[in-house]
């Protein structure tokens, strides 16, 4: 299994390289540059700056320089936050993003799997229809609509929770962004879970478990749950990607100092290195998570062999 993991990690290098290439040239396609501020700066200072950051070199040379540095783990300096390297900015924002995103995904799994199982056990009951109705709504409403809606109702009108801001990581401040981030995934996972649970409950070995005289609760926990969780586990790969892209929007809306906000700001400011750094970081994160999912899959399904 270890060799498998290592093999997979090396296999990810070309993927990341392609990612970097596309991102690098794509952001250069955008008009303007990091130093075209609204505030005019003298032409020679600008030229000086560009020389310091090698922006005067041919694009392909800049690309080579960037990839070489990247290979040594150097994300370069930020063009806008001039006293920081991109690495420092990412490590500064990551704990915040991780907290929001991690809790959101754990909530999504726990609540989604729970609701889905309940709906499956009470198939075609009112509870089932309610859960599935909620799920359809949750999937249909995008988070950039859900987030302002939540803020408006719970934050502005009812004044139950802060409408935005980080508050130094206070629980009150985290609730709305986490809920907004988790909702579509709760919805999706509960649908997924209901479907697979209904299927599993019909399978022969569940009938066997009942025939053995196992109490219903044990039949579900011991035999049905692990099998029914498989599709949810496969969904975790896309879900992480979804949480990451979601966090870009959510952090912006709620004003949370995470990586997602740096990404947006970086893109708006043409802070090339910052944007690229975040892209690479996200890429690595998704690769790692997909590997984790595959390893987890093996634990849940003895038929999976790593070789």
């Amino acid at each position: 299994m270890l060799t498998y993991a290592i093999k997979r990690l090396f296999g990810a290098i070309p993927t990341l390289l392609i990612l970097v290439t596309i991102a690098f040239f794509l952001i250069r396609l955008a008009p303007g540059g990091p130093f075209d501020d609204e505030r005019e700066i003298p032409a020679e200072i600008k030229a000086n700056l560009e020389r310091v950051y090698h922006l005067d070199e041919p694009l392909i040379q800049q690309f080579g320089r960037y990839v070489l540095a990247l290979a040594q783990g150097d994300f370069g300096p930020s063009f806008k936050y001039k006293d920081y390297t991109v690495t420092e900015l990412i490590w500064g924002g990551f704990p915040v993003s991780l907290r929001i995103g991690g809790i959101a995904i754990l909530l999504a799994i726990a609540i989604g799997a729970g609701l889905g199982t309940l709906a499956a056990l009470r198939q075609n009951s009112r509870l089932d229809y309610t859960v599935m109705g909620f799920a359809m709504t949750g999937i249909a409403i995008p988070n950039f609509v859900m987030a302002p809606l939540l803020t408006l109702v719970l934050g502005v009108h009812l004044k139950l929770l802060p409408a935005g801001g980080w508050g130094g990581g206070a629980v009150r401040n985290m609730i709305l962004p986490i809920v907004a981030l988790a909702l579509p995934h709760i919805a999706y996972i509960s649908r997924l879970m209901r479907g697979s649970m209904v299927e599993v409950l019909r399978s022969n070995y569940i009938r066997t478990a009942r025939a053995k005289g196992l109490p219903e609760r044990l039949t579900i926990l011991r035999h049905a749950l692990r099998a029914a969780l498989l599709p949810v586990v496969s969904y975790l790969g896309p879900a992480t990607a979804g949480i990451i892209t979601g966090s870009v929007v959510i952090e912006q809306i709620f004003g949370i100092p995470g990586i997602g906000r740096y990404f947006v700001q970086g893109a708006l400011n043409r802070d090339y290195t910052l944007v690229l750094g975040v892209v690479v970081f996200y890429g690595v994160l998704i690769v790692l998570f997909n590997l984790l999912v595959d390893l987890l899959y093996g634990l849940l399904d003895p038929k999976v062999r790593y070789d």
Binding site: R207, T208, A209, H223, K303
Partner: peptide, 29 residues
Amino acid sequence: LQIVFQDPLAALDPRMTVGDIVAEPLVTF
């Protein structure tokens, strides 16, 4: 009162070892 099913593989939980499958009724009762 026990039962043996037609499709022998499908009737066994794929995530359990054979020993656990055979032992489960014993442990339950």
